[in-house]
Design a protein around this nucleic acid. Structure first.
Length: 431
RNA sequence: UCAGGUGUAGCUCAAUCGGCAGAGCGGGUGGCUGUUAACCACUAGGUUGGAGGUUCGAGUCCUCCCACCUGAGCCA
């Protein structure tokens, strides 16, 4: 096949004859004049066809082009203010590959269930396209951030023998004659990797069988999880803050067009600056009490509580030192206050909620053993993990950033389900 | 799991007190040389989520079930 010309590069071909390969996004006819909006995955361009410029047969064939029909369209690139994007293709030839059947998704409005049922086709629409391009930029930014800091990417397994926390939120599956679970976090494996490589991260899908039906939950979502040896909570928070600031910067630099299409208020992203506000649990509790929340001191923060706190600041907020009882067994306790965990949650602005959870890990063997017992966890399952405390244990810390929640926030979306190509929720595993 | 809501044409939604099942879009046909979700005319398109019940009469009222949406809890 000949070298493809893409719509994204169309300005380079002004005045030249090119052939574009794509799909009909929309078309309008006006008697002897046709406008065909062609998309090719990199952009959309208006193609103009006058009767008389091509054969009557071809003109009539183009009239029959339906939404999402596939075609190669040749013509001369011109500049025209009347066209969206400023460029047009004056059609000289059309090679129709397929005339599509009636496309289910029209340019008019649709309900969410209908769109999700047609997710495989919905991906072609401009807004979904924009969201997934932002997602791609966020993924690249995460990788670049850690790669540039000398981290090593270590992939965590997806089949796991036991839970990180309780088994109620795990998807169980058969593993030959045994039970296995889909991973809920790569963290424990990253701790092993950090003891080998110093600075590591993993980036992959994780699975939670939580029966959550909210705009913030998926049963399958992607997390980036760094883990660093010889790292304390303060340093961990610097990494978290640095990562988020870098992601925001990259998206603002490279995805302006997509953010505009999503009608995102870009000034809200531009306002984000290091250092992020830092609150400890008691500070947060005071804010909630003053705001009249039903929050109970000693409990974890609820979703409405996170909204109250995050809306007080322009940048993401870092909340630290939660009561150890509401956090996972592997969290290290604060030596100053033994009932507090050396942990941090990062809350996205504008009420988007928690996007990062992390902290310093318990590095003392006896303390960890006691914690496993207290949480009624099967010690055998953690023998390998306990080995990490027997052979050169060091202070270490890490966190997990939820990719889809981050993208939801950056795009200013109402719901997380549009930020992953094929969302899995409690009520959907199709398509 | 709990609470609230929704379910009517391919899609998005109307239908007053229980009284003829309707519109826009999309589809089809015709018209139009600057359309941007074009416009104009005509046209086809219905097991009102399912099962029972009340009634002369049910999209509408009652019971049960199903699906989906939103939120809570839990979490990223």
């Amino acid at each position: 096949m000949a070298q493809t010309t893409y719509i994204a590069d169309i300005a380079k071909y002004l005045g030249q004859e090119v052939t574009l390969q794509g799909w009909i996004y929309n078309s309008t006819q006006k008697g002897k004049l046709q406008f065909i909006m062609l998309r090719d995955g990199t952009g959309i361009i208006q193609c103009v066809l006058f009767k008389g410029n091509v054969s009557d047969e071809l003109f009539d064939a183009c009239l029959a082009l339906t939404q999402e029909s596939s075609a190669r369209i040749s013509g001369t690139v011109t500049e025209d203010k009347r066209a969206k994007g400023g460029f047009e293709l004056q059609i000289s030839g059309v090679e129709i590959l397929q005339v599509a059947g009636e496309f289910p998704i029209s340019p008019k409005e649709h309900g969410i269930d209908f769109l999700m049922e047609h997710r495989h086709l919905w991906l072609r629409s401009a807004l979904q396209h924009a969201v997934l391009r932002v997602r791609h930029e966020v993924i690249r930014a995460c990788r670049d951030y850690f790669d540039n800091l000398g981290f090593t990417l270590i992939d965590a397994p997806i089949f796991t023998p036991a839970a990180c926390e309780g088994t109620t939120t795990l998807f169980e599956t058969n593993y030959f004659d045994e039970k296995a679970y889909l991973t809920q976090s790569g963290q424990l494996y990253m701790e092993a990797a950090a003891m080998a490589f110093g600075k590591v991260y993993c980036f992959g899908p994780t699975f939670r069988a939580e029966k959550s039906k909210t705009r913030r939950h998926l049963t399958e979502f992607w997390m980036i999880e760094p883990e660093v040896a010889y790292c304390d909570l303060a340093m961990d928070m610097q990494y978290a803050e640095g990562l988020i600031a870098y992601i925001v910067e990259r998206v603002l630099d490279n995805r302006q067009e997509e953010l505009k299409r999503l009608e995102r208020d870009i000034s809200k992203l531009e306002a984000i600056q290091k250092p992020f506000p830092r609150l400890d649990y008691d500070d947060a509790a005071k804010i909630l009490k003053d705001a009249g929340s039903s929050f109970v001191y000693g409990d974890d923060l609820g979703a409405p509580d996170e909204t109250i706190i995050s809306q007080k600041y322009a940048s993401p907020v870092m909340v630290t030192h939660y009561p150890a009882d509401v956090k996972a067994f592997y969290m290290k306790r604060d030596p100053q206050r033994n009932d507090r965990a050396l942990c941090v949650d990062v809350l996205a602005p504008e009420g988007y909620g928690e996007i990062i959870g992390g902290g310093q890990r318990e590095d003392d063997l006896q303390a960890l053993l006691a914690r496993i017992k207290a949480h009624n966890l099967p010690q055998e399952a953690f023998d390998w993990y306990l080995d990490l405390r027997k052979y050169g244990s060091v202070p270490h810390a890490g966190f997990g950033l939820g990719l889809e929640r981050t993208v939801t926030w950056l795009c200013g979306l109402q719901h997380i389900r549009e930020t992953i190509p094929f969302p899995r929720t409690i009520s959907r595993i199709y398509p």
